[in-house]
Design a protein around this nucleic acid. Sequence first.
DNA 1: CGACTTTTATCATGTACGGTAAAAATATAT
DNA 2: ATATATTTTTACCGTACATGATAAAAGTCG
Lengths: 94, 94
Amino acid sequence: MTNGQVRYGAIRSAGELGRLTRAHRKQRKLTLETISGLGNLSTRFLSEFERGKETAELGKVLLALHTLGLEVVIQPRGATPARSAPTRVNQRHA
Amino acid sequence: MTNGQVRYGAIRSAGELGRLTRAHRKQRKLTLETISGLGNLSTRFLSEFERGKETAELGKVLLALHTLGLEVVIQPRGATPARSAPTRVNQRHA
DNA sequence: CGACTTTTATCATGTACGGTAAAAATATAT
DNA sequence: ATATATTTTTACCGTACATGATAAAAGTCG
């Protein structure tokens, strides 16, 4: 919401994943109902997932992401990120 | 396993994620027991997750990946695949 | 073979899930 | 602003299964 641009990239929690997913869906002007139909997922599941539900099932989460046209990339931390905007350098954790 | 080189990149299913995770862990010569201790996750959960359990909980999955030093990148499908610029697939020990 | 790692099994507790309808929150129009 | 339409969240219910701890079994490696 900060500037209307969705920030794709690394996520480290269910909350971040949910927010990113919702932002992506909104940007594409899709409703939960639509995704529900396309992916055979309940709107309830989608609603909870996008709100950061920690216990959402992995399989359904992956299906939701795929249905929304999102891709999940796994790489060793620190590996050069996929192209895109300026790699945010504000990272500093253990 | 097949070739000694772990293939990071996009994953589409719980099975792929599990296999990739296990390959990464093995490559680093870590045991389930070790990860269990570091991440406060049961070896049972880890074992099932690495074998592709679809219903594994999202939060624990993310914790496991993080504990193993893996990063989860979300991006629109079609964006240039995560490909390390200077072919850095493995790193030195910290 | 012996040491180490992973899988399986048991038990009890807790909750995810779908379908549906109603309520609440948002968005759009008049 | 107020009304109207659309979207999202919440509440029920019952079924099914995830989870941790522990011990035992099975698998792997040198």
